[in-house]
Amino acid sequence: MGTILFELALTFYFAATIIGIIELFKGTKTTARVMLLLVVIGFALHTASIIYRYIAAGYIPISNPHEATSFFSWCTVLLFLILELRYKIGLLGSFIMPLVFVLMLSSAMLSREIKPLSPVLQSYWFGIHTVFAFIGNAAFAMAFGIGIMYLVQERYLKSKHPSGLFQRLPSLQSLDEINYRLITIGFPFLTLAIITGALWADKAWGGYLRGDPREVWALITWLIYAIVLHARLISGWRGKRAAILSIIGFLTILIAFFGIKLLGKGLHVFL
């Protein structure tokens, strides 16, 4: 049952991605509405699948790569729906849904076996740390999408050939402001995730920092977003540079998340 719900969610996200790409080339009001509807249905199924798994496993289902990636996508979609309802940003879905779909697809390809929770994870830190981390990540994922949209729109304006998506993309100012807002949301969550992670590590292994590659990458990510925020406050860095940095920041998250898993082992063996 949980698997079926998950697969259905994946299917709906896939359909939404396809409509989103069509929307880029030949957008009408209908395509935008159909896409939103598909995302909403997919999200409902996805939510159900997570709840189902929670009940089946008896713990918060963020304990292995499959669950974590699925939860990551879930947070991203949730944030997308909130943004969509609040700001109605044209074409945002076309830029975000492919990313969600790729995340979900990688989640689908990872082992879905439900195992008893390893002792280290049997701690209330586990829930707090992971939820903070993924809410932060979702905000950064969204900032990544917005950043790409900014660069596209900026290219149209600088090249002086505004055509294609130009009319339907939002203004640079609103993209920049939403990007900034997302980072100000993501940053405290990332900070909290790092702090709770350190406290948890101290409890579990005795020591806040263990030189685990993921810890190092998390700090690098933190540093990048800290630079974005700091430079904006101090010298008014905004626009293109902020957009580029929010793209780079998200890429480091992806490296931290997937890359390290592929490279080798650390303390984060669970994810």
Binding site: Q153, Y156, L157, P162, F166, L169, P170, S171, L172, Q173, S174, E177
Partner: peptide, 10 residues
């Protein structure tokens, strides 16, 4: 005006 609206929001 069109261009201005795509640079500025308000």
């Amino acid at each position: 005006v069109e261009l201005a609206k795509k640079i500025f929001d308000d």
